[in-house]
């Protein structure tokens, strides 16, 4: 397995008495679009900031392109090949669109003028307009333009489509997809919009209370997670302890026993058959349900 583009090992971050990250371990491989899902306050933004050298971890390791993200010199080198779009779309409000472009382009020798023209058009940005007067959609468009035109190997985005109408959202997603279409480009983005993650991501990492809970290819999650419903003639038996692996949660409601499985549905079904259910339903589980389950919300 080639070296991951992003890797954290037992990453911890404490501010005062708040433990934002409590031993986060994750990897992101090159050439993938990886969605980073987590509730508010789960530690997503903290993780991204540590990767970019804006914060230093309390303990543990964070690496980008194999280099330590908490080393100041290495971090400057990392940022030569990374584009970051923060949650509030950080930009210099006092500059105009063209000044922002010139400022950013000055740092990236491989600047793509063709993409610049393309995205100025797509997002409807006029060069002479001051950044502080841009609407939310245009501001995001500009931030995305500045990120993509750098020709960076890695894009890191924090909630890129938050607050955007569906049309602009789709344009942003399309821009991200076209970036990865050339090999060796990677996108790592955090989001609350599960549908978008399902649409463009091929891998997903879920974080809850400072730790990684699920890390898998999206297709694997779709093929492995199942909700199995056993209906009995009389009251369902007391919750059995399954020997088969993959049982995430078992619940009982009158004559129905429901098992949430993260894999091995067939073996679980076989193990439960002797209990004599009247019917067995095996149903796919949506990413949203997997997410809610992994962040401890009653599904």
């Amino acid at each position: 397995m080639p070296e991951p583009i992003i890797e954290t090992v037992a990453l911890r971050k404490t501010y005062g008495d708040v433990e934002a990250l409590r031993g986060l371990t994750l990897q992101v491989q090159a050439g993938s679009i990886c969605g980073f899902l987590g509730r508010n306050g789960a530690g997503k933004t903290t993780t991204l900031k540590i990767l970019l050298g804006m914060m230093r971890p309390t303990s543990g390791e964070a690496r980008v392109f194999g280099r330590r993200a908490d080393d100041s010199t290495a971090s400057v080198e990392i940022r030569r090949d990374v584009a970051f779009v923060g949650e509030d779309k950080p930009l210099f409000d006092y500059m105009t669109v063209s000044e922002m472009v010139r400022f950013t382009a000055a740092f990236y020798p491989r600047w793509r003028r063709d993409l610049e023209r393309h995205y100025l058009g797509i997002f409807g940005l006029s060069p002479a307009v001051k950044v502080k007067t841009l609407s939310r959609g245009m501001r995001t468009g500009l931030a995305v333009l500045l990120a993509l035109c750098r020709d960076a190997r890695l894009l890191i985005l924090d909630e890129p489509t938050s607050g955007l109408d569906p049309a602009v959202s789709e344009q942003v997603l399309q821009a991200l997809v076209s970036h990865v279409a050339s090999a060796e480009m990677t996108v790592f983005f955090s989001s609350h919009h599960i549908a978008e993650v399902e649409q463009i991501a091929d891998r997903v990492v879920m974080i809850d209370r400072g730790r990684a809970t699920v890390a898998a290819a999206l297709d694997d999650l779709r093929e492995q997670y199942r909700r199995i419903r056993f209906v009995f003639d009389d009251d369902a038996p007391a919750v059995p302890v399954f020997r088969a692996e993959g049982v995430e949660r078992v619940s009982r409601d009158g004559r129905v026993l429901t098992v949430l499985a993260s894999g091995g549905a067939e073996r679980i079904v076989e193990e439960a058959r002797p209990l004599g259910p009247v019917s067995i339903d095996v149903i796919p589980v949506s990413l949203k349900e997997i997410f809610l389950e992994s962040s401890g919300v009653e599904g």
Binding site: M54, R79, F84, G86, L91, F92, D93
Partner: peptide, 16 residues
């Protein structure tokens, strides 16, 4: 100046 601007400057490949 504004932490928004600061984050952008910090994401550039320039030392603090």
């Amino acid at each position: 100046a504004s932490s928004r601007a600061a984050l952008f400057a910090l994401s550039m490949p320039a030392s603090r």
